[in-house]
Amino acid sequence: MRYKVRVAGQGGQGAITLAYTIGRASALYNNKHVVFTEAYGPEITGGFARGDLIIDDIEIEYPMVDQPDILVVLSEEGWEMNSDKLAEGGTLIYENFLVNPETDATKFGIPAVQEAENIGKKVVANVILMGAFQELTDIVSKESLEKALLEIVPKGTEELNLKALRRGYELGKEIGGKKK
C-alpha cells in the first residue's frame, strides 16, 4: 500500500520535522520504503515549509508528491498553497486555531497549539499533531514513532515530547473516533 503525505506550515513550526519523524519511523522500524522531500521559501523562519512523504512496501520510483492522500497543515498559508492538492477521498488534518479550512474532504481539526501550551511548551504543537496523525491514519506504529522521535529530540526534552505525542494520540481518538 502506498501512502502520500504532505505536511505544510511556516518555517519554525516543525512541519518538516513532523514529516521527517514519521518517515524515519516507517523506514527504520516499520521496514517501509520511504522517500522524504522538503521544500521551503527563501527565508527559513517564517516562510512556507513543506515536508513530503511517500511510504510504500515496494521501491519508490517517481519521488514527488503531487496529490497527497493525507494533508497535514499547520498554517493558513500551508492550507492555501495546498487546498486544491488533496487527492480525492483524502484526509485533512489541521491545527484548528491557526487554520480554518473550508473543504468537503474528510477533515480533523486538532487544537495542537492550545494543548501544547497546556503541556507547557508551544513548540511541541507539531508533536501533538504527529500523535494525532498516528491515531487517525495508523500508517506508522506508535512504537516505531516513539523510537524515532526519541532519537531526534534534544537531550532533556524526551519526557516533554513523549507527553505531547501521547496527548496527540488521545486527541486523535477523541476527534477522529475509530482507526481505519
Binding site: H33, V34, V35, F36, T37, E38, P63, M64
Partner: peptide, 9 residues
C-alpha cells in the same frame, strides 16, 4: 537538487 535533499532508506 531533488536527490541531494531527498531523505530515504
Amino acid at each position: 537538487q531533488i536527490l541531494g535533499l531527498m531523505t530515504s532508506n
